[in-house]
Amino acid sequence: MLTRAWTRLGLPLVGLAVAVGLWSLGVSALEKSTPIGAAFAPLPTVLALRELVTGSDIWLHVLLSLQRVGVGLGLAIVIGVPLGVLVAMSKSFSGAAMPLFQLLRMVSPLSWMPIAVMVLGVGNAPVYFLLAFAAVWPIMLNTAAGVARLDPNWLLLARSLSATRSEIVFKVILPGITADILTGVRLAIGIIWIVLVPAEMLGVSAGLGYFILDTRDRLAYSELMAAIVLIGILGFLLDYLARAAHARWLHLKR
Rank of each mutant, 00 (worst) to 15 (best):
A179D: 06
P175C: 07
L208G: 09
L63M: 09
I189R: 04
V62M: 10
L150V: 11
L9A: 06
A148P: 05
P99E: 05
L224W: 03
S92M: 12
L187Q: 08
A125G: 02
A125P: 01
W154S: 12
K253E: 10
R159H: 06
A96V: 12
L100I: 15
A206D: 11
P82N: 05
L63Y: 04
R243F: 06
Q67G: 08
L110Y: 07
L73F: 04
T143D: 15
R248P: 01
V46H: 03
I192Q: 06
A179M: 05
R8N: 14
M89W: 12
L47I: 14
V71M: 01
E31D: 13
I177D: 08
R50S: 11
L238M: 15
E200L: 12
L182P: 03
L174R: 00
N153S: 15
A39W: 02
P12V: 05
G190A: 10
L174C: 04
P138K: 06
L120I: 02
L161C: 13
G95V: 01
V197M: 13
V78H: 01
L250A: 05
H251Q: 15
V81F: 05
L219K: 10
L13G: 09
M225W: 03
I115C: 05
S160W: 11
A29W: 11
T34I: 14
L196N: 05
L49F: 08
G207F: 01
T215H: 08
V204R: 02
I58Y: 09
Y210K: 08
V195I: 15
H61V: 04
L104P: 08
G235I: 13
I36W: 14
L63F: 09
H61F: 09
T54P: 03
A135L: 01
S111N: 02
A199S: 11
Q67M: 08
V185W: 07
E200P: 00
R149Y: 07
A206W: 05
S90P: 05
V172C: 07
F170R: 12
L131I: 06
Q67L: 12
G84K: 11
